[in-house]
Amino acid sequence: MSEQILPGYWLRVGSGYERSMLMKFIQLAYRELFPQQEDFSHLAQTVNQYLSKETPLWWVDNEPVEVPGNSSIGRQPVGCIWLGNAIDQVRGDRHAHIFLLYVMPEHRRRGIGSQLMRHAEDWAIVRGDRQIGLQVFQSNQPALALYHQLGYQTQSLWMVKPLSP
């Protein structure tokens, strides 16, 4: 079953059977951000390790899905959001964490990303979370702009240093 979130777009719950579609979306996201890199097969480990009934996945389709229990057959979603759990390292509270938010380029700037973020926030509130977090690449300026517009603030910086053997 799906619900309309914007004119022409419907949100539906994903399932563990859609791992390959989730992998496709993750790889699309990373290829956009890192076009010089060719192999993103290592991302399958993230999906295999974290996709479960405790880490909900929602898809956005551009036509409604009405076939109960068979929602992904023949579908090509235009967006998704995948959520998980994290622990606040200051207070120790569990909170929602956004693993992936992705909207196909030809469907961007129509409010889909904002609607997915609101859906994630509503899910986290119902669950009793006091905050929701995400990680975004510094080079992803459109995503940073969206998150700032929605009230997200930088809490910490993840820093890396390449090491030579």
Rank of each mutant, 00 (worst) to 15 (best):
V47K: 03
Q49D: 15
L33R: 04
E66L: 15
K53L: 14
F34R: 15
S41F: 05
F34C: 07
K53R: 14
T46E: 13
P56M: 08
S52L: 06
S41N: 11
D39Q: 11
P56W: 06
E54T: 14
E54R: 13
N48S: 14
Q36C: 10
N48M: 09
R31N: 08
V47H: 02
V65L: 08
F40S: 03
Q37M: 10
P35M: 09
P68I: 09
D39E: 14
N48W: 03
F34I: 08
Q37T: 14
V60G: 00
F34L: 14
Q37S: 11
L43W: 08
V60K: 01
K53M: 10
L57I: 14
W58C: 03
S52T: 13
V60W: 00
E63M: 06
V65E: 02
N62L: 03
E66M: 10
E66N: 14
F40E: 01
P56G: 07
V47W: 02
P56I: 07
Y50T: 04
P35A: 09
T55L: 04
N62G: 02
W58Q: 02
E66A: 13
P35V: 08
Q45K: 14
R31A: 12
H42P: 00
A44H: 04
Q37A: 12
R31W: 03
S41V: 03
Y50R: 11
V60D: 00
T55K: 05
S52W: 04
D39F: 09
P64V: 05
W59S: 02
Y50D: 07
E66Y: 05
W58L: 02
T55E: 06
